[in-house]
């Protein structure tokens, strides 16, 4: 499914890390999020060094790794998902870089003789299972050439994060390389739920309003009210991770706990916030 089209109406974009506490439970959670109004799913593939994440998502990543979640399981999971919203894969570059390298390649790698094939095999496999695009927080535009090329070859989108510190030529270059949507980072720092809407949000949106690509705001969004504010400030989408992972973190007995119900309720609050913001937007987005 075309990623940009999912933002025709302001979109609610939830994030969860696959495999926390198990791949099977993630399936229930994802279905709950879709029932609650998810328009796009950002699904995390756990990596051992999640340097852009705050404590909440770090905890989730650790649980997923402890449960033994591998890239291949992740792909099989996405392949078997029966939802009709686009899936974006969020992970770190080393997992793309290593995927599919044969033992022989790795051995000759170690002696420096042959290049690994870089992100190509990973992207190919992602395309096969129906993933629409990627967010890779430790891959700035400067290092993204090989991944951008692989995405182009397989028709996938590559989403870049615009930070509060991104400006000038770098911003231009990043927008040029981006497709699908721009991930507008609402505040400096790492992921984590916050109670307020960052003052930086409007300035960050203004900075990118001239570009013809959907803008989704993330980092610190936790309530329907915040989501509404952000859409009113001109965003085409609202990304929410930690506030949902907080619910997942309280999982208990697979048969007995009410995590799916609570996730659905939280998702509904957030997606309704997005919808209310859209309604209140009398004027066209940007300006």
């Amino acid at each position: 499914m075309n990623l940009a089209d999912a933002f025709d109406e302001p979109a609610f974009v939830p994030y969860l890390c696959v495999g926390d506490p198990s791949v099977e439970r993630t399936r229930e959670y994802v279905q709950a999020l879709v029932r609650g109004g998810a328009d796009v799913l950002e699904l995390g593939l756990p990596f051992s060094e999640p340097i852009a994440e705050g404590p909440t998502i770090q905890g989730s990543v650790v649980r997923a790794l402890e449960a033994g979640t591998t890239p291949e399981q992740y792909f099989e999971f996405v392949d078997s998902l029966d939802v009709d919203v686009p899936v974006v894969c969020m992970t770190y570059y080393n997992l793309l870089y290593q995927y599919g390298d044969s033992e022989a390649q790795r051995a000759s790698d170690a002696s420096g003789e042959a290049a690994s094939d870089g992100p190509e095999s990973f992207v190919e496999r992602a395309a096969e299972v129906g993933i629409s695009g990627f967010v890779i927080p430790d891959l700035p535009a400067e290092e993204a050439g090989p991944l951008r090329a692989a995405c182009d070859d397989h028709g996938l989108d590559l989403v870049f994060i615009v930070a509060p510190t991104t400006e000038g030529d770098r911003l231009e270059r990043m927008v040029e390389l981006s497709s699908g949507y721009l991930y507008v980072q609402a505040r400096l720092g790492v992921t984590g739920a916050k109670a307020d809407v960052s003052d930086q949000t409007e300035a960050s949106l203004a900075k990118v309003s001239q570009y013809d690509i959907p803008k989704a705001v993330g980092f610190g969004v936790s309530s329907g009210d915040q989501a509404r504010h952000i859409v009113e400030a001109g965003a085409d989408g609202v990304i929410v991770g930690s506030a949902l992972v907080d619910v997942v973190a309280e999982h208990g007995d697979p048969d007995g706990d009410d995590v799916p119900e609570r996730l659905e309720a939280k998702a509904r609050e957030l997606s309704e916030g997005v919808a209310a913001g859209a309604e209140n937007m009398a004027k066209p987005e940007g300006q």
């Binding site: 430790d138 700035p140 290092e143 994060i161 930070a163 510190t165 720092g189």
Partner: peptide, 11 residues
Amino acid sequence: GQYVPEALMPA
């Protein structure tokens, strides 16, 4: 190379 989050690139 420079594989860091975007927020750090300007720094």
